[in-house]
Design a protein around this nucleic acid. Structure first.
Lengths: 170, 170
DNA sequence: TTAACTGCAAACACTTTGCATAGAT
DNA sequence: ATCTATGCAAAGTGTTTGCAGTTAA
């Protein structure tokens, strides 16, 4: 049973996950995905969170608003969102997946990550110029030609040691 | 007990993991790391393997040469090697870590990854020109200045669908 | 009305840890 | 002689799955 039902639907468009070429949006499109209160709460929580929360961080916050929700529901929805492209999953090296809304509003420019190998802090950066975009485009075209991959996205991550961890060791 | 002892030490230089500024190399440097038969076999196996094997793939091959070795030993050594920088760990998105010798010989040029979101196949590519190197350098300098990170390395990954998985879905 | 979704708990897969023993230096 | 590494098994951790009941459409 859903323990809490006071959230209203948002204008969330969820692409159909099962068939291609079918009506692409939720709700009532015949592709199966339904908007429920727990799912609604998950969207809401993700929108409210900053950074790259882990599943348990999301779950903790979620439970404040929606006490009865189960962890499995969160996992199932995150996977659904990921496969729909609404959310991206990211492994910072500590074994826990971290999630992030792909577009909090309307594609605010993609960013990349700067990860501390020691404490797993993650910094976003988005200092890309045309230069980067050109290079990436070039690489993509090359990869498509050479390997016949349909490239959908990319990820650039720098690893290192954050100021805190540097001074700790020094 | 070590069940197999017919491997000889190699000229593997393992950086000390515990203190900085101390004698940096193994063996007999006082930093604690010792070369043992199982460890030797792990090095050897990694050298022999292509691609980005998972732990169980490494373990399977390892057992052929060194039947008595324990899985925990492999994990412990991979972590040691990773922290020493001899090996890099990489998550392709299927939840299993994949390992790769950082330098099979003498830094043969780093490569990046092209990952299939569907079957998790990984292709290496190394088509980087000066262009890329310059861009990356520029970004690194920027990141160091702005965030005070000591950047040690980076990773560029393209995601998409491989030819096999594309045709399967079509 | 029916097919999707949920919560719970049990199962899972991968990794880490405790401990007594073996081994490198 | 000392202190690290090993193998085994048990514990841990994060994630997935089976199921009976609930709910969106």
């Amino acid at each position: 049973m859903y323990n809490d039902n006071h959230y209203q639907y948002k204008d969330v468009k969820m692409r159909c996950q099962r068939a291609k070429g079918q009506g692409p949006f939720w709700p009532s499109n015949g592709c199966g995905a339904r908007m429920t209160a727990p799912r609604q709460a998950i969207f809401r929580t993700l929108h409210e969170m900053e950074g790259h929360p882990t599943v348990d961080e999301i779950f903790a916050k979620l439970r404040l608003q929606f006490p009865g929700i189960g962890l499995a529901t969160l996992y199932r929805n995150l996977e659904l969102l990921r496969s729909n492209g609404h959310v991206s999953a990211f492994d910072s090296g500590d074994g826990k997946l971290r999630y992030e809304l792909r577009q909090k509003a309307e594609r605010p420019g993609h960013h990349h990550h700067l990860v501390c190998r020691s404490c797993h802090q993650i910094i976003d950066y988005m200092n890309f110029e045309n230069e980067e975009l050109e290079l990436v485009k070039k690489l993509e075209v090359h990869l498509v030609q050479k390997y016949k991959y349909q490239v959908t996205d990319h990820d650039i991550t720098f690893y290192g040691t954050c100021p805190n961890c540097s001074t700790e060791r020094a």
